[in-house]
Structure formats: structure tokens, C-alpha cells
Nucleic acid binder design. Structure first.
Lengths: 231, 231
DNA sequence: TTGATACTTCGGTCGTTTTCGAAGCATTGT
DNA sequence: ACAATGCTTCGAAAACGACCGAAGTATCAA
């Protein structure tokens, strides 16, 4: 098949409302069952099954069989990035929201994961705190960790250089998933920060949901390390 | 309309073979007439017209009326990036090609523009030369200009800081358009470099095509400034 | 073994979309 | 004014794909 035909095929897969719902539902990086995805998209299990097969065959999803459940997840970060880039066009009002840089109410009411990094108020609060502290600079479609940010992250135990070496180079970018109306830190650095928070026990998944809760220790650490202020 | 519906609508627009052809045909950043796009996609003018209207309405394209021609171009770099991110999924074998870092044959047979930066052998040769010289580091999905690269570009008259300030921050990334089988420098730095080459008269558009030719002076400058070796 | 749950496959209907011929506008050139 | 060119609108035919009911397979729990 020609490259152009494959291009159209991939885009067409994302271009059905039902499949689009599923893809966006998987944007938090977790694996969902076929039934959950069917319900999410508001279609029957039969239809969902067909859609999921097609998306898996095309390399958009991977599936993991576990008992009588089949867990589906996005096949790669590249797929998540594709979804986000489409969303950027579809919902420009989100992308247009400026990254605020002054101090503000960082109420930490809800946190969630978004593919591989932190989103929700938690994600926004951490991102804001890093920016306020001069550790991070985030533009409309790219970002950079400052020298002080490197020091800070290194002191917290996150090896930016290792992250950079594994991926292409440092990849820092704003994420615009639309449950949050403000950009928050994604990319390799966002992912590293997220897994570090889990590893340190600062945050925990709320069982059965995509939400994360901040542990008491996590609240203290986030405040002391990154200056994240809790409401 | 819900965000999800808009998402699906945008993706579906890219998901038709004819429209996909047109979008990819516009990836070099130039404006093409409706007839040219129709021919490119292999469809009649009527069909093309309908497609172009829809894509323009959806914000994917902008149109400029000039006499009895209507010139269509991608509406924004964000659209180009969306197209590229879809292509990344559709043609993974291109993305998987490693960025070569050793010295090599930098035959400079053909150059073209790709949306807003240089592609073709010219784009690849410049990118390679920058990497070889330690001025640029380019990974799978992000890149960075090194300190020596900043000095080099500044000496050549390209103000990286100004570029960075205009866009979010420095945005350096590999581009994977599929006429070239190797990544080349895109992003804000790639765009700045490209326009600088035009401004300095190092390269010129070949009338009526998307190709650029390197002027004799350009060949000398590129060799002396960036170490680009011409075959 | 029996029944329930999770999911897939089959088959047919129905709505959407793409397509192009034909006709209609607008602009340019003579 | 008239014809030619570039493009759009209209209308109808054809193709495609999404959908769900029904039936089939696999796993789990008694």
C-alpha cells in the first residue's frame, strides 16, 4: 500500500466518532477492556469489537488478553502524540490558552494521569510551580528545563540526562488534553516526573479510576521540593 | 459541537485518500491552485473543489484569491505538524531510520522546502553537517542546538534567542516527510535557517516547482559556514 | 456440568460520503 | 462583446462503512 493510502487509513480510523471516543478515553495511558470502551463510545459491544480489531491491526492499539478480558491501550507514545496533535487543531481554544506565569491558586483538588504524565489540577499545579520557580519554560508547542530546573530535578532524584539519552533528546512539551483547560507538562520530562512521583509514593492510583491521589508525604515533598502549594 | 465530534471531524477530513494527497502535497508550505491539487489527487476539479471547501471551513487550509486562481495552503504550522504526526504512525519505517552521525556522502543533488524548512538532499546535508560538527543533536522526536551551534548560528546572523522568544521556546525537531527517507531539521530553528538561506541569496526557488537550487555563493557559504560538503 | 460473563463473527440494513457529468459564475484575454 | 479558463454548485448514482441482532467461542464460577 502506498504511503498516502496508509496515511489516509490511519487518519480515517481516528475519524469516526466512536473510535475517536475510544482513543481519547485511552489518552491517560491505561488499558481498558472492550466493554468499557464500548460504553465510553456509546455503542454496542459488537461494534466496539470491530473497531478495536481494526485499530489494533493498524498499529494504533495493542491488546493484552487477561482471562476473559481484553485490555486495550495506545500502542505507543507516538500514537498519543498524534491524537494530541489532531486535538490541537480540533480545539484551538484550548491551545490558545496562555500558560499563566504569575502566582495563583493552586488548589490541588484532582489529579489524573494523561497517557504517561500527570494531568488534572495536580499536573497543572506542578507545571505552574516549576514555571514560577524558573525551572521550566513552556511555550505553545515546546518547552525547556532551565539550568536551575536540571539541578532541582537531579536533587529530587530524576536524571534528566538519562531521560534525554533514552529518548531523542530532552523532550518537554505542553499537553493539551481537553479535560484540562490549561496546558501541563508532557513529553519525556513529564513522563519521568510522573513515574518518579509514583516510585516515591507521593501519589497513588485511586483503584478502578484514572485518578491519582496525593499522599500526605507526597504533599509535603511536592511543597518542599517543587514549591507546589496545596489549597 | 462536542470536542470529540470536532476531533473526529478533523481526523476524518485527513482520512480520505484524495484529501490526504492534497494535504501532503501542501506539506512543502507553498500555496497551490485548486486545479493543481485536483491533478495531484487524481480527481476531477469538482471533487477537489468540494474537498477544499470542507478543509478550509474546518480550518485546515487557508485560501487566497488571486485573479481566477485560488491558492490553497496549510492554515498553520500546527496543521503541518498534525499531518506529520499521522505520517509518523502510517510510515513507521521512516521514523525508525536512525539519524546517521558519521561523515558520509553529502551529495547535494536536490533541495526542496518542506512546509517552512529545507528538505531534500540539501536539507539532509545541512542537518548532517550540523550534527557532525557538534552543533546540533537530533533524536527521534526532539532536538537541541548545542552551545557551539548557537555561536555558529549567531555568527551566521541567525538570532536563536529571537526565534525562541517568538515561538514557545526553542523548537528543534526532526521532520519525517516521506519523500526524503531520512529525518531533517524542522521546527523553529529549521524554519529560521531556511528563511535565512533565502534572505542571503544562498538558495533560490526553481520557478514553478517546489525545488530550490543552491547558488554558487550559497555553495561556498554553506561549506565555509556550516561545513556542508558538496558532491 | 451448567450458567454467566466477555468478547468476536456473521449477515443484512441503512445512512453517509464520494464521485463525476452538467450547468453556472467569475475573471481574463482578444 | 465573445470565447476561454478556473473554479464552484447542483444532482444523481454508486460505494462504503457503521450499526446492531443473533449466534458462536472462550473463560470463569458455581
Amino acid at each position: 500500500m502506498s504511503n498516502n493510502a496508509r496515511f489516509a487509513e490511519i487518519a480515517a480510523l481516528a475519524g469516526d466518532p466512536g473510535r475517536a471516543s475510544m482513543l481519547n478515553g485511552l489518552m491517560d495511558g491505561r488499558a481498558l477492556t472492550a466493554s468499557e470502551l464500548a460504553q465510553l463510545a456509546g455503542i454496542t459491544a459488537q461494534s466496539a469489537s470491530s473497531h478495536l480489531t481494526r485499530m489494533t491491526d493498524a498499529g494504533l492499539l495493542t491488546v493484552e488478553k487477561q482471562g476473559r478480558h481484553r485490555y486495550h491501550r495506545l500502542a505507543s507514545p507516538a500514537v498519543a502524540q498524534m491524537i494530541e496533535s489532531i486535538m490541537r487543531i480540533a480545539a484551538p481554544e484550548i491551545a490558545a490558552k496562555p500558560v499563566r506565569t504569575g502566582p495563583r491558586d493552586t488548589a490541588l483538588r484532582a489529579g489524573r494521569t494523561c497517557y504517561d504524565h500527570l494531568a488534572g489540577h495536580l499536573g497543572v499545579a506542578i507545571t505552574d510551580a516549576l514555571i514560577d520557580g524558573g525551572h521550566l519554560e513552556l511555550g505553545l508547542d515546546a518547552g525547556e528545563v532551565t539550568e536551575s530546573g536540571r539541578v532541582l530535578l537531579a536533587r529530587a532524584g530524576i536524571d534528566i540526562e538519562a531521560v534525554a539519552a533514552r529518548r531523542g533528546r530532552i523532550l518537554c512539551r505542553p499537553c493539551l488534553d481537553w479535560s484540562e483547560r490549561r496546558p501541563h507538562l508532557a513529553g519525556a520530562v513529564g513522563a519521568a516526573l510522573c513515574s518518579h512521583c509514583f516510585d516515591q509514593g507521593w501519589i497513588r492510583r485511586v483503584a478502578g479510576t484514572r485518578a491519582v491521589s496525593v499522599t500526605p508525604n507526597g504533599q509535603r515533598q511536592l511543597r518542599e521540593t517543587f514549591g507546589v502549594i496545596l489549597a
